[in-house]
Amino acid sequence: MGNCYVVVIDGLGVGAQEDAAEYGDEGENTLGHVCSQTGCRLPNLGKMGLGNIIPLASVPPEEKPLSAYGKMREVSAGKDSTTGHWELAGVQLEKPFPTYPNGFPNEVIEAFCREIGIEKVLCNRPYSGTEVIADYGKEHLETGYPIVYTSADSVFQVAAHEGVTPVEQLYEWCKQVRKKILTGEHGVGRVIARPFTGEPGGFERLSDRRHDFSLAPPEHNIINNLYNRGFKTYSIGKIIDLFAEKGFTQFRRTKTNAEGISQLLSLMSAAENSFVFVNLIDTDQKYGHRQDPEGFAECLQEIDRAIPAIVSKLKDDDLLILTGDHGNDPTSESTDHSREFVPLLVFPSSSVQAMNLGTRSTFSDVACTVADFFELEESYPGHSFLKE
């Protein structure tokens, strides 16, 4: 038994799922469109088999790929990060987290105002995170009222200028609304603190001080089960937030993909019989939502350049799984996530049942595989792709 690494490239989809039209995402293809529009070269991921999963304009298929390859279907209702990561961990959701295309109802906003001792909030409707501070930031500075907004995802976001509301106070507000208000019927996937700085006309989000407060996942998931049986479990990036800080021996939040990759390489030098769950968020947060295919391509190339170093640190009995959590097509007219299949690369390929893993029926095949790797008896929906 060695270490199992699951690395999620956030927002990396490989084509619309069969039910994409129900989500308004018919025809979306994050990786396919990025490659065709930018000519993105990914030689190392290509050698692993990325170009074997779907046809890619700038990443040809490999005759003898180094990894087993395939794609996975999301069966949970939704297309957000929490839903995707939970399904990877073995939790499938029959109902989506609630969303608020018309803003949050009065009872939610009034309860929030009472809880933090204010008269009102600004905005309260779906909005771009950069545009909302540009449009409401000046009024926020003048009144002190926080900016509350949402998106197509199940999120309650609170933006406040660090000079008006200290960041720790903003975190406390979000903790309280998560704990006391946004539960049950209004149990959104995440409450997100969004501090910003600057002056009117030049406001800037403090992405490194953003903090997500997730709904706690069901207890039966691969992370909790590994942790409760004494295995070391590590989170790198925002994973810890998506699982409400539960089930991890140690976590390392990161500001950039470069930092996440550096933390992973450092941990790989010391980890033994451990599970390491990594999220590389820049593709989604910096480029997918901002409709920047060139930036998305450059971000993928940064990850591609790190692949040789990552593979070189793998021990003979280690397992590496590269995948995504949803799509976020930067060439789309929408700035939201997209309902897409996600890529699957498993290294070394000798560990799995077939070189071409096909289309997996659920993201939870990852949880089944991790359980199989660590010889756990717990079952999850789906099937392991390790050799028996």
Rank of each mutant, 00 (worst) to 15 (best):
G198Q: 11
P200Y: 03
G201R: 01
G202H: 13
E204F: 14
R205T: 07
L206Y: 02
D208Y: 09
R209H: 13
R209Q: 14
R209E: 15
R210M: 07
R210Q: 12
H211K: 15
D212C: 05
D212V: 10
D212S: 11
D212G: 07
S214G: 13
S214F: 05
A216T: 09
A216F: 04
P217V: 10
E219D: 15
H220W: 02
N221Y: 09
I223N: 08
I223G: 02
N224K: 10
N225C: 07
N225W: 10
N225Y: 09
L226E: 03
Y227E: 06
Y227P: 03
N228M: 12
R229M: 10
G230Q: 05
G230N: 12
F231M: 13
K232I: 01
K232H: 08
T233L: 08
Y234V: 14
Y234Q: 02
S235N: 06
I236V: 10
G237V: 04
K238Q: 03
I239P: 02
I239F: 09
L242T: 00
F243V: 02
A244S: 14
E245W: 02
K246M: 13
K246L: 11
G247W: 05
G247F: 04
F251T: 05
R253K: 15
R253C: 09
R253S: 09
T254C: 12
K255M: 09
T256W: 12
T256H: 10
N257T: 05
A258N: 14
E259V: 04
E259K: 06
I261S: 00
I261N: 00
S262R: 13
S262C: 07
Q263G: 00
L265P: 05
S266V: 04
S266D: 13
M268T: 07
S269A: 14
A270C: 11
A271K: 00
E272H: 09
E272A: 10
E272L: 01
N273K: 14
F275H: 04
F275P: 01
F275S: 05
V276P: 02
F277V: 00
F277I: 00
N279A: 11
L280D: 03
I281D: 07
D282I: 04
D282T: 06
D282N: 13
T283E: 08
T283I: 03
D284N: 14
D284F: 05
Q285L: 11
Q285F: 03
Q285R: 08
G288Q: 07
H289G: 14
H289M: 12
R290G: 09
D292I: 01
P293W: 12
P293V: 02
E294Y: 15
E294K: 15
E294D: 15
G295A: 05
F296A: 10
A297V: 07
E298F: 10
E298I: 00
C299R: 02
Q301W: 10
Q301A: 11
Q301Y: 03
E302G: 10
E302T: 11
D304T: 01
I307R: 00
I307G: 00
P308N: 08
A309F: 06
I310R: 02
I310T: 01
V311S: 08
V311N: 06
K313A: 09
L314R: 04
K315V: 06
K315S: 13
D316T: 15
D316K: 15
D317F: 11
D317E: 15
D318Y: 06
D318S: 07
